[in-house]
């Protein structure tokens, strides 16, 4: 058990470091851009520590330089509104205590959320969140500092292709969860809506629009509830999807609280506190504990 955790942690560390390296470089680019736009060094550094949201920071610097500070705040907040649903999904994954949740909330980024939700609820998810959260925070702020110091000497992160690194990383973390049919349908529909809306809506709104795709499962469940005897109804047992024959062992998307099947929780331990969603709790309570373990191994 212990070694399993250790190897899991080593791999997690390596994975987070890959994104951290990209964040360091983009942070340096932010530092350089902000100073070039006329922001004092202290303000640039303070922004990375206090706001800690790359997209909103770049946008705010541009709008402040253009002389519209109010727009900088509003546009930045619109861009960051997606953190609210992220927080709802993460919930107790930050830790059981109030202090952990208050501090951990500040470390919540798209990447930390993706690393955490790619693991089943429980101690493994919490470790993933904190490891990614702390490391990426350090990388972003160290990068900003380097950028402020180096100024124009910082190269263009586009030349390194770093703008492709982030979406590829997010997609890779998300991929295992897409084996679950419902998650796949909602995620792909949401992504399509967001891309189509991007030319039409201000930044931030298209991504939020992806949540509209949740009407698919809501309508599906209502239909299922209206006709409970019809074959193929799903109701609240997403693990028993009739159209994924054989309930493939690697479909840990079956535990609907896990975005992916990364095996960080080999014992299938019951999640601590309120971390687990009901469906996971059902599995952890011994409904089919063997399947959870196999699922983890298969996803290896």
């Amino acid at each position: 058990m212990r070694t399993a955790y250790r190897t899991g942690d080593a791999r997690l560390l390596r994975d987070v470091a890959a994104i951290g390296a990209a964040m360091l470089a983009v942070g340096a680019s932010f530092g350089a851009v902000a100073v070039a736009a006329g922001l004092p060094a202290w303000a640039t550094l303070a922004m990375s520590v206090l706001v800690y949201a790359g997209g909103a920071q770049f946008m705010a610097v541009g709008l402040v330089a253009a002389g519209s500070p109010l727009a900088a705040v509003l546009a930045g907040l619109l861009l960051n509104a997606r953190h609210l649903p992220f927080g709802l999904a993460l919930g107790g994954a930050l830790g059981p205590g109030r202090r952990q949740r208050l501090l951990g909330s500040h470390l919540m980024t798209d990447e930390a959320t993706a690393f955490a939700l790619a693991r089943p609820a429980g101690p493994g998810r919490r470790r993933a969140f904190w490891l990614a959260g702390v490391l990426l925070f350090l990388a972003w702020n160290a990068g900003t500092g380097l950028g402020v110091l180096a100024g124009g000497a910082v190269g263009d992160p586009g030349a390194l292709g770093l703008d492709a690194a982030f979406p590829a990383g997010l997609a890779a973390l998300l991929l295992p969860s897409l084996r679950d049919r419902e998650t796949r349908r909602v995620a792909l529909t949401g992504a399509g809506l967001a891309v189509l809306a991007t030319p039409l809506l201000p930044a931030g709104l298209p991504v939020l629009l992806a949540l509209a795709a949740l009407v698919l499962p809501v309508l599906g469940r209502r239909r299922a509830a209206a006709a409970p005897d019809s074959p193929g109804t799903r109701r609240d047992t997403p693990g028993a999807t009739p159209d994924t024959p054989g309930a493939t062992p690697d479909a840990l998307g079956a535990a609907p609280d896990a975005l992916g099947g990364v095996p960080d929780d080999p014992g299938g331990r019951p999640a601590d506190g309120d971390v687990a969603l009901p469906a996971r709790r059902r599995l952890a309570d011994g409904d089919e504990p063997g399947r959870v373990v196999r699922a983890g191994e298969a996803a290896c």
């Binding site: 999904a89 949401g190 967001a194 629009l209 795709a213």
Partner: peptide, 14 residues
């Protein structure tokens, strides 16, 4: 909730 988070992350990636 996790399905919604997956939709947001997919939309961000796309």
């Amino acid at each position: 909730l996790p399905v919604g988070a997956a939709a947001l992350l997919a939309a961000l990636a796309a």
